Structure formats: C-alpha cells, structure tokens
Simulated scan of single mutants.
Amino acid sequence: MKRNPFARAALAACCLAGAGFASQALAQTTFDVIGPHEYELPTGFKPFNVFVQYGYVQDNRRVYDDKGDKVEGSGSQAIVGLSKYVRFWTPEGNPNIGLAWEAIVPEISVRDGRAGTQASGIGDPLTGFAIWMKPTPESTFGFQSFVQIPAGSTEVSDRNWKNLSSFLWDVRLPAGFGWTADAGYVFQGKRSDGLHPGNSFHTNQRLGWRANALLEPFVAFDYENAQSRGTLPSSRATDLGAGLMFHTFDNQSITLRYSASVNGRNHAANNSLNLKYAYVW
C-alpha cells in the first residue's frame, strides 16, 4: 500500500495528553499512554481532526510501601477508557508552528473482587492546548498544558482541579529509530474533602524502531515523583514497558503495550495492558 506522507505526519500527531486523568489510585503514571511518533508533529499543514480511543486494564495486586518494598495491594482491577477529540491547525501568519486543542473524557470502572464491589462512571474531563515548532526537519519541540475539571461521577472523580503542563519533543534517528518524549508537572488543587495532594514531576520516554511498513516495536520508560504535602507522603514510581505499533492505514494506527513498575514508594505497582486506536480525518 502506498503511504501518504502528510497522513503519516497527521497520524503521528494524534496524542498530546495521556493517563493520569482518572483517580490516582489507578496507578498509571501521568501521560504514560504515549507511543512512538506521539510528538512527531507537522507544521505548515491544512487543519485536520483526530479521534483517539485509549484503553487499559490495570491489576492492583501489589503496591510499594513507605520503605519502597512491594507488598500486597487491594487486589482490585481497573478498566479505563479515554476518548479524545483533537483539532489541529497552523496559524495563517506563521506556518512554522503548529497548534492543537483537545478534549478528553475518561470512562472508569474499578472492580474489587475481594469486597464484591464496583465503582464506575465518567471520570474528570480534560481540555487544553499544545504548540510546537520543528527546529530541524527531523525533530519537533513544543509545550502542552491541560486543565482537569472535577466534574466526573462522584465514585471515580479525584474531586480537585489540576493543571498538567509539559514540554514535548521528538527526534527521528538513523536506521529507522525514533525517540519521542515529554517532561513536566501536574499542579494539584485542594480536594473537596480538604486534602491537598502534592504536585508531581513526570517524564515519559519511547524508543521505537520501524521494522517495516506495518510494524514498529518499541520500549518505554515512565517515571513520576510526587511531593509530600500535609498528611500525604511523597511518592514515586519507575515503570518499564514494551509494545508494538501497527501502522495499519494512512489515517489509522493501533498500538499495544505492556507496562510494569520496577521501583517505587507509596505508589501502586503498575501492571497493565494498554491499547490505543487513532483515526485521522
């Protein structure tokens, strides 16, 4: 199948925000849904739209305690979907930069087999923007910022406002390799119950290799560190993962990944299967 270069660039631009949208109890590191080419973004293009459906299943059997030891967790299972619409465009006065605005709605279900309970509903939605430039034809550098609104279902809402702001970059390397990554902070407001979670730093790194027109295996590194505040202790987690991106059509792709924590403290241990489907038009 002949590939359309613009469509490939548009498809790569499909995700400018990731996990961390649902309750912190779900263990996922902020923005850890990103995949290869996530920030390989175009400039000088006509406006286009993207729909992305993420999904992951997280097993909460293990957690890290205050000493950094892995101990028994709740045993619950989290099933989360993230539905996202993005509008991309280039300003008429400056075609050398790109802009995007997006809205994300989480769908959350947490099942506790031991207690025989289930909490489910629509999570706290996000909306925000991204801006980027291309320092070289093979690289992208930008900034993104999102507001998370505590308007989700009571059973699954974090019950506080958040701002997620980060720098993003992508570098296309020789021999079919590519590096895409971000680094930033999550700024937390006070919850309705009076608790005020600490702000957190996160970074997400993906190194992929385009094996052929269809397949791109990749490795993943995710790190998060939250500061202590009041009675809430500091926490951290380091996750490693491996996945495969299927470049199915010019305007569609499917990405699969497994992720697991290798180190942490006061944090649930990540043990998740992740899926992303993207469609560009």
Rank of each mutant, 00 (worst) to 15 (best):
N4M: 11
A10F: 15
A12G: 15
A17W: 04
A17G: 14
G18A: 10
A19Y: 10
G20V: 03
A22C: 11
A25F: 02
L26W: 12
L26S: 07
A27I: 00
T29S: 11
I34V: 09
Y39I: 00
L41E: 07
G44P: 01
F45Q: 10
P47Y: 08
V50T: 12
V50P: 11
V52T: 15
V52F: 04
Q53M: 01
V57C: 08
V57W: 13
V57A: 06
D59H: 13
R61D: 14
R62Q: 05
D65H: 02
D65A: 01
K67G: 13
K67A: 13
K67F: 12
K70L: 13
K70R: 15
K70S: 15
V71P: 00
G73I: 04
G73A: 06
S76N: 10
S76D: 09
Q77W: 11
V80M: 04
Y85R: 01
F88R: 11
F88W: 10
T90D: 01
E92W: 05
E92N: 09
G98S: 08
G98D: 07
G98E: 05
G98C: 12
W101E: 00
E102D: 09
V105W: 03
V105I: 12
V110M: 04
V110K: 04
A115W: 01
A115P: 09
S120Y: 07
G121M: 02
G123C: 14
D124C: 08
L126T: 05
L126N: 03
T127I: 08
T127K: 00
G128W: 08
F129A: 13
F129W: 13
W132S: 06
P135V: 07
S139V: 02
G142K: 11
G142C: 11
Q144T: 09
S145Q: 02
V147D: 03
V147F: 14
E155Y: 07
D158H: 01
R159C: 02
N160P: 06
W161Y: 15
N163V: 15
S165W: 01
S165P: 00
L168D: 03
W169F: 12
R172K: 12
L173C: 07
G176C: 12
T180R: 08
T180G: 10
V186E: 05
G189Q: 00
D193N: 15
D193G: 13
D193Q: 04
D193V: 08
S200D: 09
S200K: 04
F201P: 05
N204P: 10
G208C: 06
W209Q: 07
W209M: 03
A211T: 06
A213I: 07
A213D: 14
L214D: 04
L215T: 08
A220M: 08
E224W: 09
A226K: 07
A226F: 03
S228Q: 09
S228V: 06
R229Q: 05
L232N: 02
P233N: 14
P233V: 09
A237T: 05
T238R: 06
L240K: 15
A242L: 07
A242V: 11
L244E: 06
T248N: 06
F249M: 12
Q252T: 14
T255E: 03
R257I: 00
S261D: 02
V262W: 06
V262T: 13
N263W: 06
G264C: 08
G264N: 05
H267F: 09
N270G: 15
N270V: 15
N271Q: 13
N271R: 14
N271C: 12
S272I: 00
L273M: 11
L273V: 14
L273N: 01
N274T: 11
Y279R: 15
V280Q: 12
V280L: 07
